[in-house]
């Protein structure tokens, strides 16, 4: 069964909140393992894991550098250079925070990479979300393929006129300087003609809009969304009540 887009987003959001609030090693690692496992099962790993790496690697390294080297409460000193001391407690704290953060980031990325964007746009449109916002959201799905096919066309036109491009990704990257300006100009030009087409088809008109796409929902999913949101709220309240829980 395909999940309603709001259900998957609610699940991702509340899992991220609960994991952050729980601040516990086992919970974080379980969520990380589950998110990675689900991404493979859903076929999203290829796109999701590189994105996660781009976000998490610098964050985790900075956490390690900050807390690993400068942790005043640390007592077990492993190494020392002047004011900077590597302490066991500092490292442990940094790793715990890194796991917590990774769990939240991975689960949110999983939600956004697996949600069906057309379904989400349809749901948002019928719930009165601004049509322009829905259009931008829908563009995330079509813009990248459109840009890459335009780039491919420009590249072929240039090759047909003698631009020698070495095979492989480095060759293409090196040749990109020839394509960047034409690509940008053609996208700007296309945006102008597209705007006329969209306006003539009533896009941006005042008044209610409807959606042709049907998104299946069920009472179970509606209840699940309420429970997920309540669970997230409960986790926050619990965390505020017991500030040292799990730390």
């Amino acid at each position: 069964m395909r999940l309603h887009p709001l259900t998957s987003l609610a699940a991702a959001g509340s899992t991220a909140v609960i994991t952050t609030a729980a601040a516990s090693w086992p919970v974080s690692l379980t969520v990380i393992a589950a998110a990675v496992g689900l991404s493979f099962a859903q076929g999203a790993a290829r796109r999701m894991l590189p994105a996660a790496a781009v976000i998490l690697v610098p964050l985790v390294l900075s956490l390690l550098a900050l807390h690993g080297l400068f942790f005043p409460e640390g007592t077990t000193v492993l190494a020392q250079w002047g004011p900077a001391r590597v302490t066991a407690q500092g490292l442990q704290f940094a790793l715990e925070r890194a796991a917590q953060l990774s769990a939240a980031v991975l689960v949110l990325l999983l939600g956004s990479f697996t949600v069906s964007v057309p379904d989400l746009v349809a749901v948002l449109s019928t719930r009165g979300v601004n049509a322009r916002f829905a259009f931008v959201l829908a563009s995330t799905l079509t813009l990248l393929p459109a840009i890459s096919s335009r780039l491919e066309r420009i590249r072929q036109a240039q090759e047909a006129r003698g631009l020698v491009i070495r095979p492989g990704i480095p060759g293409r990257v090196a040749a990109f300087r020839w394509q960047a300006v034409p690509l940008l100009l053609s996208l700007v030009e296309e945006a102008g003609t597209r705007a006329a087409a969209l306006q003539a088809r009533g896009f941006g008109s005042a008044g209610p809009i409807t959606s042709y796409r049907q998104v299946l929902d069920s009472p179970v999913q509606r209840w699940a969304r309420v429970v997920l949101l309540l669970a997230a709220l409960a986790a926050i309240v619990f965390r505020l009540w017991q500030p040292t829980a799990g730390a």
């Binding site: 057309p118 746009v121 449109s125 049509a131 259009f135 829908a138 563009s139 799905l141 079509t142 459109a146 296309e190 003609t193 597209r194 087409a197 969209l198 088809r201 009533g202 896009f203 941006g204 008109s205 008044g207 209610p208 809009i209 409807t210 959606s211 042709y212 796409r213």
Partner: peptide
């Protein structure tokens, strides 16, 4: 150049103008 580019099926692309007019 006439297409919305944000609809993923032919049926939805056809319906784009009707959606904007608020047709049920």
């Amino acid at each position: 150049g006439a297409l919305s580019t944000v609809r993923v099926t032919v049926a939805e692309e056809l319906a784009f103008g009707l959606e904007n007019a608020g047709v049920d």
